[in-house]
Simulated assay, not measured.
Amino acid sequence: MKLLAALLAASLLSTTAYGAQASWQHKPAQSCLLQPLSGADSKFCRGDLEVIYPELGEVGCKHIPQCQQYQRRISRDWGSPRVQYPRAEKDKKYLLVLVDPDAPSRANPRNRFWRHWLVSDISGADLRTGDIKGQVLTAYSRPSPPPGTGYHRYQLLLYQQPAHEAIALSPAEQGRRGAWPMESFVERFQLGSPVASTQFLTKHYED
């Protein structure tokens, strides 16, 4: 009986250790933690908008680390993030924007805003769960800062759509993503100020 009890205890310890190891593999290593933004960059983040990528988890108001090839993977491997807004009103519609204001570089942003993702008619109920459905006006394009241009800000802005307002890009806007006049777009459809916004910073993975 003592031998059986010892074997059961060893088996339980082994299972517990494996479970802890398996769970740990889905989290960034302690030496590879995401650093929070500071100063003016951190002030852009407001309203509890959550942006979640595989393995990294919530990246809002953070630097994407180079370790574990995370900068490469966000630019080359991963698709669109899960975006969640717990404060969304279930019976409202929302519009989500992802732009790079630092194209081609933060020092010379002549192509701001570079439009990476634009989705309208997202229901508040879906936003609460992070299941982004709606009218895709611009398909998701991965953050891909050019080599040697330093860190780029990738900004997500969430707007509440006016009731019964049909949102669409003009033919000229559809023809190019760079140098998008986002302020004119927001004014044209009377979107007002974003209800929430956040951003993360990353650079070319070989820099």
Rank of each mutant, 00 (worst) to 15 (best):
G47H: 08
Y140T: 02
Q25K: 14
Q160D: 09
S105M: 07
W180K: 01
T129M: 11
S31M: 03
P104H: 03
A9I: 12
Y205W: 14
S105Q: 06
T202R: 00
Y85A: 00
Y85G: 03
Y159W: 05
L33Q: 11
K90H: 06
P109F: 08
L34G: 03
A168E: 06
Q135L: 06
S14G: 10
G124Y: 00
N111S: 07
C67G: 03
E50I: 10
L34A: 11
L13M: 07
G150I: 02
I52F: 03
M182E: 07
V186A: 02
S75G: 12
R112I: 03
E187L: 13
W78D: 05
R72F: 09
L118D: 00
Y94I: 00
S170E: 12
L8Y: 11
S80T: 09
P54K: 06
C67K: 02
T15W: 13
R106M: 11
I122Y: 02
T198F: 01
W114A: 08
L56Q: 04
T202S: 05
A163D: 10
T202C: 01
A103G: 11
R46H: 13
V136Q: 14
F185W: 07
A163Q: 14
W180T: 01
G124I: 00
S144L: 08
R73M: 09
C45D: 15
P194Y: 06
V119Q: 01
T129I: 15
P28R: 04
R177D: 13
Q35L: 09
S120M: 11
P143W: 03
Y159A: 00
I132Q: 02
R87T: 05
R76H: 07
A6V: 11
A22M: 13
P146H: 02
K133A: 14
T198Q: 03
H63L: 10
D100L: 01
W24C: 14
V99P: 00
T202E: 01
S11M: 14
Y53H: 08
Q199E: 09
R82Q: 15
S11C: 15
Y70D: 05
A9G: 11
I167Y: 00
I122P: 01
S42A: 14
